[in-house]
Design a binder for these strands. Structure first.
Lengths: 228, 228
DNA sequence: ACCTGAACACCGTTCAAGT
DNA sequence: ACCTGAACACCGTTCAAGT
């Protein structure tokens, strides 16, 4: 039985789908730099070079991750609410998906136009900015900026970069807070006074809510100002 | 003469400063993935392992790049204008520095609290959000988000990712525009109609100006709404 | 104090070959 | 159609050793 692993179970055939899925899992647990052709092959009990039947190169594998995530962003067919609500809605949907896969999130911005799913999200964002009445020459750039900014919210969340393990994480937060608190208040008064909030985000949900509001409010304001 | 290169010129001694500088140059011309311990060593006619005298590991070298860039962001000692003007000013100063080094820009967000220069920029941003009257619990998270969003503006600029060489770049733009224009307008009407602006940013200066305005206007709006 | 050389474990990728 | 094995050029990093 050449196609069975040590448990005698039939060895699952390799597929793009399966590889992308385990690549995302690997990024979730160990970070994007752990996503490696060789480690992926190992997890599937297969030679490293086997992956090249399914992906032209590693870049295409990463494209596959981005596409898989973007497919999870539902673009509502029959949305309700005015454009600011709808814009906030589509951006918030992206946030929800990417918060579940923070390490892979950084793959998104450069790949928004590289898959049907990414194009659907982009089309919706462009349409809403058009409805808002932004100057035509500003719509494309602003859409790409908004989508990029939403992704950067994940990386900028205070307390990301620290370990995931709870206990280990608490230790790291304590150390970091101590370091920031010990900085000279003469030079850095505000950093010192906000040391706690800079080290760890007490309320991530509100962090995301508030910053989404900042973006939508900013667009509303600029849409209301006729080209100045 | 053991310390002279083939031109007989005295070989410059290795230093953190010199290594960081050429690392940035390498990132500028060939991208961040070209910044490699071994290539850097080669450029300085030195064994790869020599770098480890000056940097504990590659991560520290990247920290050095981020710090070097952040040092170029001048934080005005005696700023004038109201807080929205000052906030826009500090964010715009970051943009100016990072536009000159777009490949290295992505190193910044995770390292804002890791150097005196980064801390100075962060302190100023925090101070301005405080002056704006944001709720205290939102200031730290919003500052990190703003600084991250400014960095993501560089990566999100339409037409980045394409080659730098002018002729080669024009070809790439044509191809990409053709691809987007050929998409089914039934599904993606707005993407198709904005194909041109999505492929290439006709006016980068205005792109940055406008999106900086979006951010500052958004903050102003949220500061004016008392916690709802 | 500063740099080298040998060595190690790990990468992505090609190509001819197997089934 | 799908996978393997050998091979290649390239990574980051250690450590004992040289000057």
């Amino acid at each position: 039985m050449p196609n069975a692993d040590k448990d005698g179970q039939p060895k699952a055939r390799l597929s793009r789908e399966a590889l992308v899925t385990s690549a995302i899992a690997l990024a979730d647990t160990e970070g994007l730099e752990a996503v490696t052709v060789r480690r992926l092959a190992q997890q599937h009990s297969v030679a490293p070079t086997s992956l090249y039947w399914h992906f032209r190169d590693k870049e295409r594998l990463l494209d596959g991750i981005a596409e898989h995530l973007l497919q999870q962003v539902e673009v509502p067919e029959h949305p309700d609410g005015d454009w600011p609500e709808q814009l906030r809605d589509i951006l918030a949907r992206i946030v929800v998906v990417l918060r579940a896969h923070p390490a892979a999130a950084q793959l998104i911005p450069t790949r928004l136009l590289a898959s049907p799913a990414g194009l659907a999200v982009t089309d919706r964002t462009l349409a809403l900015l058009k409805e808002a009445g932004l100057p035509a020459e500003r719509i494309a750039g602003t859409a790409m900026f908004l989508l990029g900014a939403v992704v950067s919210m994940i990386a900028a969340e205070p307390g990301r970069q620290l370990p995931q393990d709870k206990e280990e994480r608490e230790d790291a937060v304590r150390v970091k807070r101590a370091l920031l608190s010990a900085l000279p208040p003469r030079n850095l008064p505000v950093v010192v006074s906000f040391a706690d909030h800079l080290c760890d985000c007490a309320d991530p949900d509100t962090y995301y809510d508030f910053n989404l509001d900042v973006l939508v409010a900013g667009i509303a304001r600029m849409a209301a100002t006729p080209s100045r």
